[in-house]
Design a protein around this nucleic acid. Structure first.
Lengths: 206, 206, 206, 206
DNA sequence: CATGAATGAGGGTTCATTCAT
DNA sequence: AATGAATGAACCCTCATTCAT
């Protein structure tokens, strides 16, 4: 991620790579993986088609690189939030809010990810789905362990922490998708307290 | 839906249509819309390619027909559950359980739907997304009105019923997806009480 | 051509055949041979596709039947004009005028004929071109023999009558096509005397 | 038209384009637009099908390019003849003879043009017919103005020059088509004086 | 290294024709 | 005799990928 201290050539290469990935993300998220051609990507990135193939060995490879990059960032940020030393409830509130920011920032890649992997549109032949899943699972486990701490401290009832994490994910995602579809009518931020309450009353120890 | 009493010719036509849709669903959900060719569908359905085109004017039309058919059924069944005259809590429990059955039955089409519309892989030009969304919105509104009744009867706390419905959807979907990925380790049915409790404790009046 | 005295069944068949040919002519001349499907013809003629194939063994056969029918009529009428016993100049004038009427009546088939045989759009595999050509050659020979009589009577200069006929054909056709393209601005009938004069006296000043 | 001094790459491109157009002309004029596939053209031109599509965006586009190229040449040559400063009669004789040479050279494209536009076989959707017609009309007007000069100089009788041009076109075309069909028996060149005389003096005995 | 012309497999779609009813 | 559902060869075109310059 850091490219300081690299020889100029290497730095340039990295910049070109990023330009290509950016062009690809734009186009993929506008029109979907299958409706974007490598030529289009090359053109948008202002490189020749051959150059694109110097950086990514084929279209799928380019797609995977794109997704991995975004996933890793997503993962890094949320893991950071969960790593904080505050008390559980604060961490949770932080998490719910941070997720909103990430959603906004990476709307394009999220849509793309859902389109291409959740369903069946493009059976990533190998690797990607696995890799991203692993990252996501790791994250859910982390979330679960945060919640488990809450259980141990009797802040929460004795519920399987994994399912608590699952519930929290489901709850926030539902509100986020709703918000995406009509940001005016269903603001996310205004609903953060509601989300938190619904979740907490559900899992909180009496 | 019943085709009793139709002339034999018409009945045959309907049967053929269903065979084609079934073949298409199988293939689409296995490999994704863009990775299935009309020839493949025709072959799997054991018809000539031309026959396929007699029934559906093009590939997108076939896809839309498929999604509409499934959506309508999904909608019909869940609306039926919500229409029952039992008390709110019973209805909700029924709903959570019925959704599991529907998920199992129409796993393929669900994956397909998520793949092709939730994301950007295939910008359904018009109509389908709208039509299916409308159906879904109708359903969520119905669910909300059931919950609203609960609020009026003071069974639930005073929360916007639409957001309660949203929460319930998010909660159940999260568990369902989890179950889909590993049915052994994360059985859905065994968790129905947990789901219900998490939801209820979250929204129940004290 | 006459179908009087035929059993009713036969008469009906002929009528059906004519309906099909009429539908075909309409469509062919509107859109061209290759842009009309057998289904379209069947539909316009209000018969099932299978019935069409009972009457014409394939698309080309239908086309040939159509062209032969029209050619024969064209031939019969013009031969009739040339057979009259009037003096040469009267016959010629009659011929020039009759051609105009025929053009109007059978505009559709003429366009079609020109489209499909004069050029290369559709190499009639065998037969048609030959048959129609023979008919046309016969007609030109007849025209030539009428003109030859004029030469013998010293009405015309001693020019090869075949080339005179050719010249007359070229002259009239040029005016007819011009008229077809813009009937208002280039009326044919008003120009008949001019055509006759140009043919007879050329354009040179004395 | 000259491609001297272009970078080598550009020159190659032009050569390839010409090879494709040549292959297309050969095939179209042999078998007609609708009976030639893009694959066939590519094969005859010894390029891959994809390359063909790099040069012409679709089959119709290829056809139009072909026709425009030929029309423009035809137009340029004949306009050149009419631009000469000789006296009218010399120009006319030159014109009649030049037309023969052009006919021979571009027999294939002429047949094709007649096949596809004069008739109805292929309704060029827009543009081509217009463009070529305009070129041809321009040419007839030029011919008419040459003839008009003859009228003013009292070389010709007072006849509408446009109709004189039309007559000349009709006359020469008739002899050219006749010649095309049987070059041995109906040589064109040997008949040039006859054509000129018929045009000039008509057929009437004095 | 960058380029972009060339490749050709493969996809969506049409339509002449057949044949069981 | 009439029907029209079914067939499948063949068409136009796209696009991921290669490679000579």
């Amino acid at each position: 991620m850091q490219d300081e201290k690299l020889p100029r050539r290497e730095r340039e290469k990295l910049r070109h790579r990023r330009q290509m990935l950016a062009a690809a993300l734009e186009l993929f998220s506008e029109k979907g993986y299958h409706n974007v051609s490598m030529h289009e990507i090359a053109e948008r990135a202002e490189f020749a088609i051959g150059t694109l193939y110097k950086f990514f060995k084929n279209k799928e490879d380019l797609y995977k690189a794109l997704m991995m990059e975004k996933s890793e960032e997503y993962h890094r940020v949320l893991m950071g939030v969960l790593a904080e030393e505050d008390d559980v409830l604060t961490v949770l509130e932080d998490y719910i809010a941070t997720k909103a920011r990430l959603f906004t920032d990476s709307l394009a890649s999220l849509r793309l990810y859902f389109a291409e992997t959740r369903g069946a549109s493009f059976n990533i032949k190998a690797g990607l789905d696995q890799d991203i899943r692993k990252l996501y699972d790791k994250f859910v486990m982390r979330l679960a362990s945060v919640l488990e701490a809450g259980v141990r401290k009797k802040v929460f009832r004795k519920i399987d922490p994994y399912y608590m994490a699952l519930a929290l994910e489901g709850l926030t995602n539902a509100f986020l998708f709703c918000w995406l579809e009509d940001p005016e009518q269903h603001p996310y931020e205004a609903n953060v307290p509601l989300i938190r309450d619904m979740f907490l009353k559900g899992v909180l120890a009496e």
